[in-house]
């Protein structure tokens, strides 16, 4: 896969389809791949990386990149393509300046998950069929890939690239029984006190680094309300117990019905706060109350929060049905 993607990147550059390529390159560590722009064969050969750690969703970078001269090629995994299409729908990306190469994906891995399995000091990872071969300071180890997946990939909702100019690998299908709402349901089943304790424990770790916001493809405002003095809620850091609550509720609300559930917020959180659960709660409520809706799956439907029917349920449904809306 890695070689095919690199070859495609070089091909698109050299045949003049595009003048730059958006892909991944190694960050500080080999498992921390970051987005990178490549403009030459040499650059691609030397620094372009694609591995089980190419989790970063590249779609958001196209807001700025598609406004620059010339065309850019981008590699989109299935979940990234939903974000891409949602941004297209919101007129944020100039489609004609982007060449989309869809790539089939069967899940991305996380070094955190590997470490949680008690394997430390990993210096290299190689895919070997269903397994990952790990080179560690303490000798070689093998782990099933399925055991090293990111949470979002364990509960993958779709393996279908929804927008592409060409595909590498075979395009997949949506996965209806992804069980992605299991944790949301588990929380709903708790008492309010338990839920409060859970979220207090999670959210109080927030250091307001804004990584979740900065990586989120739906959080693509020119200027975030939290950075805008005029909004009256601009805060640089968590000043109180509630501050981060406020930030995360508002953030989740702002992306509600636009969030494609790409899971980047939780992946990048340095404090490992399961932020995606807030988004999934909104998605689950929307699905149950207003009909199934997957943001980014098409170009035409109105997002449920910008829509209504005259016989929508009343807000009191929240009391009537308890935690489980």
């Amino acid at each position: 896969m890695r070689e095919m993607i690199k070859a495609k990147a070089i091909e698109l550059l050299e045949n003049g389809t595009v003048n730059r390529v958006l892909g991944w390159k190694a960050g500080e560590f080999f498992y921390d791949l970051t987005p990178g722009i490549f403009t030459s064969r040499e650059e691609i050969e030397e620094t372009f990386e694609y591995s089980v750690f190419s989790a970063a969703n590249l779609s958001k970078y196209l807001i700025a990149e598609s406004r620059k001269e010339g065309k850019i090629a981008v590699f989109l995994k299935p979940c990234d393509s939903y974000s891409f299409q949602q941004l297209l729908k919101e007129h944020r990306i100039w489609r004609d300046r982007v060449y989309v190469v869809g790539i089939a994906c069967d899940g991305m891995c996380s070094m955190d998950v590997i470490r949680d399995k008690g394997i430390t000091g990993v210096t290299a990872v190689e895919e070997d069929g269903e397994n990952l071969k790990l080179t560690t300071l303490y000798g070689d180890k093998t782990i099933a890939k399925a055991d090293a997946l990111l949470e979002r990939c364990v509960h993958c909702k779709s393996r279908k690239v929804v927008v592409f100019d060409e595909m590498i690998g075979e395009n997949g299908e949506e996965i209806p029984d992804s069980h992605r709402f299991d944790m949301v349901e588990k929380l709903e089943a708790m008492t309010p006190e338990e839920r409060f304790a859970f979220w207090r424990g999670e959210l109080s770790r927030c250091i307001r680094c804004n990584a979740c916001r900065n990586v989120c493809p739906a959080c693509s405002c020119e200027k975030c309300v939290f950075d805008n003095d005029k909004s009256g809620i601009a805060q640089k850091a968590a000043a109180s117990d509630f501050e981060e609550n406020n930030f995360h509720i508002i953030r989740a609300f702002h992306v509600a019905s636009r969030c494609t559930d790409c899971g980047e917020c939780s992946r990048v959180c340095p404090q490992n706060i399961p932020l995606h659960l807030l988004n999934r709660k909104f998605i689950r409520d929307i699905n149950e109350l207003y009909g199934e809706y997957q943001a980014g799956s098409d170009m035409d439907t109105k997002p449920p929060l910008m829509n209504f029917t005259t016989d929508d349920c009343e807000p009191s449904v929240v009391y009537e049905r308890g935690g489980k809306v």
Binding site: P192, D285, D312
Partner: peptide, 14 residues
């Protein structure tokens, strides 16, 4: 719609 979802979220946060 907005309030339904918001209230449900507040409830979700305990």
């Amino acid at each position: 719609r907005r309030m339904t979802l918001l209230f449900s979220m507040l409830d979700f946060l305990g």
